[in-house]
Amino acid sequence: MRIRDILRNKGDAVATVAPGTTVRDLLELLSERNIGAAVVSADGASVDGIVSERDVVRRLHERGADLLAAPVSEIMTARVETCGPDAVVDDVRGIMTEHRFRHLPVVQDGRLAGIVSIGDVVKSAIDVLESEREHLVGYIQQSP
């Protein structure tokens, strides 16, 4: 299975914020959309960074409530791992597990094409296993 298969099912919408967006506004976006991360992008197409709930919590502990007025560019991860739509889901799951991050932007031709979460990747693995199980059960039930 490829990342494009996941995007076909979930869609390619990506929550983005400009680098100057305040942490307070970021939190509002994350809460409203019930998501855990947003891509930081000055133009909505490039990936300048990524910022997650985890980034906010860690910096809030260090800096206190004043952090809420700070721009997300101060807390974002600037060196962002990405993948393409043709990436193999098992490979992506390994990368996410090894590097311990839960969101991976999908980039095609230098433009943001979607985002996958560890939940999306795990769900796809479960779907594949369920399909294989159904095929095996069908095969066994058809045997003489």
Results as ranks from 00 to 15, higher is better:
R111P: 06
V89E: 00
S46V: 09
V137D: 06
E132Y: 08
A13S: 09
H99W: 10
R2V: 05
V116E: 01
E98T: 08
S52E: 02
I50N: 05
K10E: 08
V116K: 00
I35Y: 02
V14Y: 02
V47H: 03
P71V: 13
V39P: 01
A18K: 12
D12F: 09
Q108N: 06
V89F: 03
R111W: 07
V128T: 13
S73E: 15
A78Q: 15
E62G: 02
L30I: 09
I75Y: 01
V14C: 02
R24C: 10
A65V: 15
E62W: 12
A69Q: 12
E28R: 15
H135A: 14
V72A: 05
T97M: 08
L112Q: 03
A69Y: 03
V106Y: 03
V40I: 11
S143M: 15
R79H: 13
I115A: 02
A42W: 02
D127M: 11
V116A: 04
P19D: 05
G114F: 00
E81I: 15
G110Q: 12
E32N: 12
D90L: 10
S143A: 15
L68P: 06
Y139Q: 10
D66L: 11
S31Q: 14
V56R: 00
P71S: 09
I3K: 05
R24G: 10
R111N: 08
E62I: 15
E132G: 07
F101H: 06
F101P: 08
T97R: 14
N34P: 03
D12S: 15
D48K: 11
G84I: 11
V106D: 03
M1W: 03
S52N: 05
M1D: 01
M96P: 03
H61M: 14
M76F: 04
R102H: 14
V56H: 03
I3G: 01
D120R: 00
I75E: 00
R4V: 08
R59Y: 13
I115S: 03
E134R: 15
V107A: 02
I115L: 14
I75N: 02
L29R: 13
G94P: 08
V137F: 08
H135S: 09
G64L: 12
N9M: 13
L136M: 15
V56T: 02
I35P: 04
L104C: 09
L30Y: 10
I140R: 10
L7R: 11
G49H: 08
D48E: 09
S41V: 05
R63W: 14
I75P: 04
P144Y: 12
R2N: 13
P19F: 13
L29W: 01
A70I: 07
V17R: 04
S131Y: 11
P71L: 14
I75T: 01
S41T: 06
A125D: 05
A45P: 01
L112W: 02
R58G: 00
R24K: 15
V72H: 02
C83G: 01
V39K: 00
I115K: 01
A87Q: 09
A65D: 07
V106K: 01
L104K: 00
A42H: 00
A70M: 14
D55K: 07
V92K: 06
A78G: 15
A42K: 12
S41K: 12
R58V: 13
Y139A: 13
V121M: 03
L67H: 11
T97G: 12
G44R: 09
K10M: 13
V39A: 01
